[in-house]
Amino acid sequence: MTEQTGRNERRLTIARAMAEAVAQEMRIDPRVFLMGEDIATLGGVFGNTRGLVEEFGPERVRDTPISETAFIGAAVGAAADGMRPVVELMFVDFFGVCMDAIYNLMAKNIYFSGGGIKVPMVLMTSTGGGYSDAGQHSQCLYATFAHLPGMKVVAPSNAYDAKGLMTAALRDDSPVVYMFHKGLQGMGWLGTEPGATVDVPETSYTLPFGQAAVVREGRDVTIVGLAMGVHNALKAADDLARRGVSAEVIDLRTLVPLDRDTIRRSVAKTGRLIVVDEDYHSFGVSGEIIASVVEHDLRGLKAPPQRVAYPDVPIPFSRPMEQFCLPNPAKIVQAFDRMAQA
């Protein structure tokens, strides 16, 4: 999965980029350690801790029992005591068994201590469907975590961002929920979006939170997405370009903090907004992005904003049903057509 390119860059998968960021930080910071299910010997079900136990040993890379409440709660206590734990919630869908540790402890202890303690921990968790795993193993739940105050939330779309955001997360004194999409991970058996595997510098670097990336510049419409949504948006932008429509694509990269300014600037230029989100349609990221634009300034809009999101149904197993529900480039193009008719 590694191939050499120039200038100390290699094409890496997101999984490899995450593991590399963690390893580099563990080499210079003895406070960083990992806990999770199947993260040591197996290297993570989604490959993002591969090689770590071999280098750092089982004291710092700890396979846990299937006890998310215990080990995520323990991470909160270890973080308050001066460590910098990284924990993995294997599928974000499993949050139901341990949400108290996440949103009542991890997310609130800084506030409830009046800033007296820090909670420097990273909660890695996998998101996304598209491979017929049904609704207990396929959700994104971005908005669920971004909605609850006290957690920073990141969701990379490619390996370069994945490494920089991970290093930044490891150095943050607040809890970070690091949501990686299974379909971008570079695991062959899950099917992988090739666009997520990109050149990554060997050296350690950080990306600042709260800075969205304009990954494609355009004039006629702004398409905002995160994680897999960015790749769908880029493909839709290609399709639109063939029709002479110039689409600008914004990769949010982090939901908390959210870079509203970049979105507003782009929409002020294009006058049209489409939000792509694999999380549920209602009460979620797409509504938040649209509200952030329209509550700021309605005047620049040439058409009502559109959203391409997951319908408000549990995620079905059967391939035709799931594929019907998922966002895709064609739906984004259709959304643009609806706006053009407006």
Partner: peptide, 16 residues
């Protein structure tokens, strides 16, 4: 829910 953080603090001491 105070139990997890206590276990984590104990782990922290052991690791450090």
């Amino acid at each position: 829910q105070g139990m997890g953080p206590a276990v984590g603090a104990a782990l922290s001491r052991k690791l450090q």
